[in-house]
């Protein structure tokens, strides 16, 4: 199992693109997606990282322990992670009304 497969990737280019987007971010306890990182520790593929168009998923080493860090704030609510995760780690809902990404072009 390749554990830290995404650690060397420069995520700067994709994160820079998100700078042009407008978000109304809900508080963390109301995050619309919750990821159970303990399940990710043994995931054989981390296809969430492959699929997510805005790189909300990062599998980091924190204090010597591989840890899935999920940033709901950058989410564009496409639903891809809920499809790619077959391990049951992703609980997916739409944000509460008016919260989340707001496209101006679409």
């Amino acid at each position: 199992m390749k554990k830290f497969r995404d650690m060397e990737e420069d995520t700067g280019p994709i994160k820079n693109k998100l700078g042009v987007l407008t978000y109304k971010t809900d508080s963390e306890e109301n995050a619309h997606i919750v990821v159970d990182g303990t399940i990710c520790e043994t995931c054989p593929h981390h296809l969430c990282i492959s699929g997510c168009p805005v790189r909300c998923f990062n599998f980091f080493e924190i204090d010597g322990k591989p840890t899935m860090v999920f940033q709901y704030e950058d989410c564009v609510e496409c639903g891809t992670c809920d499809i790619m995760c077959d391990q049951g780690a992703v609980s997916w809902n739409f944000p509460r009304g008016s919260f989340g990404v707001a496209y101006e072009e679409g």
Partner: peptide, 12 residues
């Protein structure tokens, strides 16, 4: 180039 990016988005 990023200066000309008006928007980025994704959809199923």
């Amino acid at each position: 180039g990023i200066a000309n990016l008006k928007e980025y988005g994704a959809k199923l």
